[in-house]
């Protein structure tokens, strides 16, 4: 939702980044204010997942130009864990399985780390158990998943639920959801998106990175950006997503090239 009195959370200016020496991001500009939901769409290889990873601080990506300001500070001064503690969250496209670490232990460790950063109370295992079970109801998630290894043997839908559960626990200012709809059946998609919708408010913001318009039927964006070849080539409202759904991506790049020639 676009609010009049919103604060700027994220300011991306001319961002360039490479992986293995190949430039993937070629000058990204993006402003995200509190309360807003942005969708970043584009074909495979357009650079949208790279943008998500660069913002979260993955060390395989090298920032070669531009700036990113997060809540007024230079994002690139922060290590990935400091970004997380400062309120930036990335829901992974492919959440990592960590057999041997109980999911409940991992969730509590992450929760307490962020709580400590915010000067808030940490929870012991018993307190946390009650707390996390409440949050799991939001996602219609079976409490049995607390006792399993982190994401170990979870189905695609269960992994994505677990990502959103982490979002619910960490209460980020800015959540970036990378292809959260991929691999979800319709029931899982409904409960995951319902969870996300309950977590969005006028103080936080969400960036949805997605290939398909389907997700945007459930989480309605305020802005839709189309990425191609490492740039945002078009920005519009939620109706742009519907147009992409019926017309595909090609017309956007044709339109952009035509405009560039003028």
């Amino acid at each position: 939702m676009i609010y009049q009195d919103s604060k700027t959370l994220l300011e991306v200016r001319g961002l360039r980044a490479t992986v293995n020496g190949i430039e993937i991001l070629k000058g990204i500009d993006l402003t995200v204010r509190s309360g807003e939901i942005h969708a970043i769409m584009g074909t495979n290889g357009s650079g949208k997942s790279t943008l998500a990873k660069v913002l979260a601080g993955h060390n395989a990506y090298k920032v070669t130009g531009g700036s990113v300001t997060f809540e007024g500070g230079n994002l690139f001064d922060l290590e990935p864990e400091e970004r997380a503690r400062a309120g930036l969250f990335l829901a992974f496209q492919y959440p990592i399985e960590i057999p041997g670490v109980a999911n409940s232990h991992f969730l509590r460790l992450a929760y307490n780390t962020v709580q400590a950063q915010r000067g808030k109370e940490e929870l012991d295992p018993l307190e946390f158990e009650d707390f996390v079970r409440e949050k799991m109801k939001l996602l219609e998630m079976n409490p049995d998943f607390l006792d399993r290894g982190v994401n170990e043997g979870f189905s695609g839908g269960e992994k994505k639920r677990n990502e959103i559960l982490q979002m619910a626990l960490l209460e980020p200012r800015l959540a970036i959801l990378d292809e959260t709809d991929s691999g979800l059946d319709i029931d899982a998609l409904k409960s995951v998106t319902n969870g996300v919708n309950q977590l969005t408010n006028k103080d936080n913001a969400t960036i949805l990175v997605t290939h398909y318009q389907r997700l945007l039927n459930y989480i309605v964006p305020d802005y839709v950006h189309v990425m191609e070849s490492g740039r945002i080539i078009k920005t519009g409202g939620k109706e742009l997503a519907l147009e992409l759904e019926t017309r595909g991506y090609d017309w956007v790049s044709v339109e952009q090239r035509t405009a560039a020639r003028v």
């Binding site: 060390n59 864990e81 997380a84 670490v101 992450a110 780390t113």
Partner: peptide
């Protein structure tokens, strides 16, 4: 990276993963 993206420090992340490998 996954663990660091959840706020865990590098050393905590490495300790946890090494432990998990054996556990």
């Amino acid at each position: 990276f996954y663990l660091k993206s959840r706020g865990l420090s590098e050393i905590t992340a490495r300790n946890l993963l090494t432990y998990a490998f054996g556990a």
